[in-house]
């Protein structure tokens, strides 16, 4: 490298260089990168502990280089509580999808938030069960087809999409609740900023922070990666508007 050249970007060390096998158009790998970059910028990579949910979110174990443990389906909020309380110097985050966090793990999610556990929650919401093959999630949109709702979700039978960030915003303890996306460079930068802020909150002992990231699942939505982006922006963001619900300093 020439002496006058400046290094302006480097891969995060938090993710393996061998790449990943997520489906084309999947956004998990982008989120992994942002988590790694945020922790690196804070100089906390060697303190980082990933508490991984079950589902596609649980595939991250194959690709990250930092410490991790796998929670039972939905229990990441409880497992992270055990980790953080026993090892306060660790930088603990849960990585959960919508089925994991908002269906089977709703009690653990709500309770960890309500206790104001000093953890960071990364919630990847794509409105469907990915790994198990496209079943209906609490966040599935009305009319959206799923293998367990073949005619599409209807409110009479299935109720309405669940708005996790809005629900958690009813609780007093959480310090930071944001909903963001990684569909554009601007949103990617913003999400990295949010994740870093959420980590900072934890380092400063401020308490519970959740970053909800609305993403796509081209495979189970039955759309191509480009069409998925259109669907994400037109339909998903309409149901799940991006924004800062709470940014306590």
């Amino acid at each position: 490298m020439a002496e006058d050249m400046k290094k302006v970007y480097a891969r995060t060390k938090a993710v393996k260089e061998s790449g990943n096998s997520f489906c084309p158009g999947c956004m998990h790998s982008t989120v992994h990168k942002l988590i790694g970059e945020a922790a690196e910028e804070l100089g906390m990579l060697d303190k980082l502990v990933r508490v991984e949910g079950v589902g596609c979110c649980g595939l991250g174990q194959l690709y990250v280089t930092h410490d991790w443990l796998i929670a039972a389906h939905g229990r990441a909020g409880a497992v992270a509580t055990g980790v953080k309380r026993s090892s306060p110097d660790s930088l603990v985050y849960t990585y959960q999808g919508d089925g994991d966090l908002a269906a089977i793990g709703l009690a653990e999610t709500m309770s960890a938030a309500n206790r104001g556990e000093n953890i960071t929650v990364i919630f990847v919401n794509n409105g469907i069960y990915g790994m198990t093959g496209g079943q209906m999630a609490p966040t599935t949109l009305i009319g959206m087809k799923a293998t367990t709702a073949p005619a599409g979700r209807n409110a009479e039978e299935h109720g309405y999409p669940m708005h996790v960030s809005e629900i958690l915003n009813q609780l007093t303890a959480p310090k930071m609740i944001v909903r963001t996306a990684v569909d554009t460079p601007q949103n990617v930068m913003k999400t990295r900023k949010y994740i870093k802020k959420a980590f900072q909150n934890q380092i400063e002992g401020k308490g519970y922070s959740i970053v909800e990231i609305v993403t796509s699942c081209p495979t189970n939505w039955g759309l191509g990666p480009i069409e998925s982006l259109d669907f994400l922006r037109e339909k998903m963001f309409a149901e799940y508007p991006l924004g800062e619900f709470r940014m306590n300093d």
């Binding site: 443990l69 409880a78 980790v83 953080k84 309770s111």
Partner: peptide, 24 residues
């Protein structure tokens, strides 16, 4: 030390799991 009242037995045993994983 730490005492946590879990929101359920399910949560409590998983808190235990998380704690033990740290070596305590």
């Amino acid at each position: 030390g730490t005492f946590v009242q879990g929101e359920s037995e399910v949560a409590s045993v998983n808190m235990l799991y998380g704690a033990v994983a740290t070596g305590i």
